[in-house]
Computed example of a mutant assay.
Amino acid sequence: MTMQFVIHNWYLFVALGVILFLLVMGPLSQQLHGIKNANASQTVQLINREDGVVVDVCEPKEFQAGHIPNAVNLPLSALSNRLRELDKFKSKPVIVTCRAGNRSMKGAVILRKHGFATVYNLSGGLLAWEKDNLPVEK
């Protein structure tokens, strides 16, 4: 009976496999590339104590609507082509952020692949930053 269910509903099991694969790949990719997560208070410490640099991968309109003070805006869509602009920061901690923290992981992977030594992903992005009542520039 159980095997019949599996055979008749094979597509459900394939979908389950795909979903599980996607859930595992995010953290696995992060670990493989040596990217650390940083919350908002850790990001403040990285900026103040280690001269960390915030790279915001939001599109320009989002960035203009609000961003972490002194953040460098390099949209994810153009990041690979504009990496030279960040060369002077290769030896510093780089914290990658976006609005909610989803695109920033992709940006962090790109930076690690191009030789940036210490790369962090701001967990929760600008939304987490604002939730902690930290300053935002417009």
Rank of each mutant, 00 (worst) to 15 (best):
M1Q: 14
V6A: 08
I7Q: 14
H8D: 15
N9I: 05
F13M: 06
F13D: 03
F13K: 06
L16C: 14
L16Y: 11
L16I: 15
G17H: 09
G17M: 08
I19N: 06
I19F: 15
L20C: 13
L20V: 10
L22T: 12
L23M: 13
V24W: 15
M25Y: 10
G26A: 14
S29V: 11
S29M: 13
S29H: 01
Q30A: 05
Q30I: 04
Q31A: 04
H33E: 11
I35S: 07
K36H: 12
N37V: 01
A38M: 05
A38L: 02
N39K: 06
N39L: 06
A40D: 04
Q42S: 05
T43M: 02
V44L: 13
Q45K: 14
L46K: 02
L46P: 06
L46W: 03
I47H: 04
I47V: 14
R49S: 15
R49F: 07
E50T: 01
E50F: 13
E50D: 12
V53T: 13
V54C: 02
V55N: 03
V55L: 15
V55H: 02
D56R: 08
E59G: 00
E59F: 03
P60A: 04
P60M: 09
P60F: 02
P60G: 03
E62N: 10
F63G: 06
F63D: 08
Q64T: 06
Q64E: 13
G66R: 01
H67W: 01
H67T: 03
A71K: 10
V72A: 07
V72W: 08
N73E: 05
L74W: 05
P75G: 02
A78D: 11
A78Q: 12
L79E: 08
S80A: 15
S80M: 07
S80V: 13
S80T: 14
S80W: 00
R82C: 01
R82I: 01
R82G: 08
R84T: 14
E85M: 12
L86V: 10
D87H: 11
P93T: 07
V94P: 03
V94I: 15
V94S: 05
V96P: 02
C98M: 10
C98A: 09
R99W: 09
R99I: 06
R99A: 14
G101P: 07
R103K: 13
G107N: 11
G107T: 08
A108V: 04
A108Y: 04
I110H: 01
L111Q: 12
L111T: 11
K113Y: 00
H114S: 09
H114D: 11
Y120W: 02
Y120C: 03
N121E: 02
L122R: 10
L122D: 06
G124L: 12
L127M: 14
L127D: 13
A128T: 06
W129G: 09
W129K: 08
E130H: 04
D132Q: 15
N133W: 01
L134A: 13
P135Q: 02
K138L: 03
K138Q: 12
